[in-house]
């Protein structure tokens, strides 16, 4: 029985790493000669459309993180300090996107986006608004865990008694104490935005995943390269996230 355990683990490892290995192999393969080439990877920086899509996705990631923090962090701090009876409502609203699939929101969003387009124009960056909804459950959990580990009320009372206004309390007293939560929320949001396809493809915006699919019809090697690059970046962000989590949990003990 002793060899069963490692064997089973090995089978799992093969299932999970074979696709990644294949991506690497495929993205460096010269389809004509069968040798190795860096052309597919080079296409990622040289192809103007791919470069634009990468820039769009990165801009969306930054904007989503910014809007998410501006919207969520003050609200969550405010709930803890002034209206604790609303905490269940905020939690419910934040976790709601887990039960309403993005696909459903896409179908019903036409009306809302005709207003968004009316005010802001039809740029791909308007996707930020729906992406904030998408990352809400994950960002909420990260921020909630971080806020629970500090004594928000005492900090706020101390600051208030020294004459600080509410804005100062939120931005300069509480927020700096939950940096690890803010980073966790930001990392998971970036990871989700970089891979997001449902909204962008069905609303006809050219983000990186949309471009990867389009590339797949021509230079499939380049779309494999872009896929692997996205996966590695996502993995890096999520591993950094789990390290942050660990640090927080060891400190809380």
């Amino acid at each position: 029985m002793r060899w069963v355990r490692p064997l089973v683990l090995l089978a799992f490892a093969a299932f999970f790493f074979a696709p990644l290995w294949s991506l690497l192999d495929f993205s460096t393969k010269d389809f004509l000669t069968g040798g190795r080439t860096g052309d597919h990877w080079r296409a990622l920086v040289e192809n103007q459309e791919v470069r634009d899509a990468i820039v769009t996705s990165l801009e969306l990631a930054v904007l989503t993180v910014a809007l998410m923090l501006v919207l969520l962090l003050p609200t969550m701090i405010w709930v803890r300090l002034r209206v604790p009876q609303a905490s269940r409502l905020v939690e419910f609203l934040c976790l709601l996107p887990l039960t309403v699939p993005p696909l459903v929101i896409v179908v019903g969003i036409n009306g809302v986006y005709s207003w968004v387009n009316y005010f802001l124009g039809g740029s791909a960056l308007t996707l930020t608004f729906v992406y904030v909804v998408l990352v809400l459950p994950f960002a909420y959990r990260a921020l909630d865990a971080s806020l629970s580990s500090i004594d928000v009320t005492t900090l706020a009372e101390a600051a208030r008694s020294l004459g600080a206004g509410w804005l100062t309390v939120i931005a300069r007293v509480v927020a700096p104490n939950v940096v690890s939560g803010v980073l966790s929320a930001a990392f998971i949001s970036v990871a989700l935005v970089l891979g997001e396809f449902t909204f962008s493809s069905l609303m006809h915006f050219d983000t990186l995943p949309v471009r990867i699919v389009l590339l797949g019809k021509g230079d499939i090697g380049a779309s494999m390269a872009a896929s692997l690059a996205t996966l590695l970046l996502t993995a890096l962000l999520l591993v950094a996230l789990s390290l942050l989590d660990r640090r927080r949990s060891t400190r809380a003990e």
Binding site: P19, L23, F26, S27, G195, I212, S242
Partner: peptide, 25 residues
């Protein structure tokens, strides 16, 4: 926790690269 988030376009291409018509396996 990383792989649980790996759905999407990239995953589809990873499997095409593995067991698609020109896949490694």
């Amino acid at each position: 926790s990383v792989f649980a988030q790996f759905g999407g376009v990239t995953l589809a291409f990873a499997f095409i690269a593995t067991v698609g018509s020109q896949g490694i396996i």
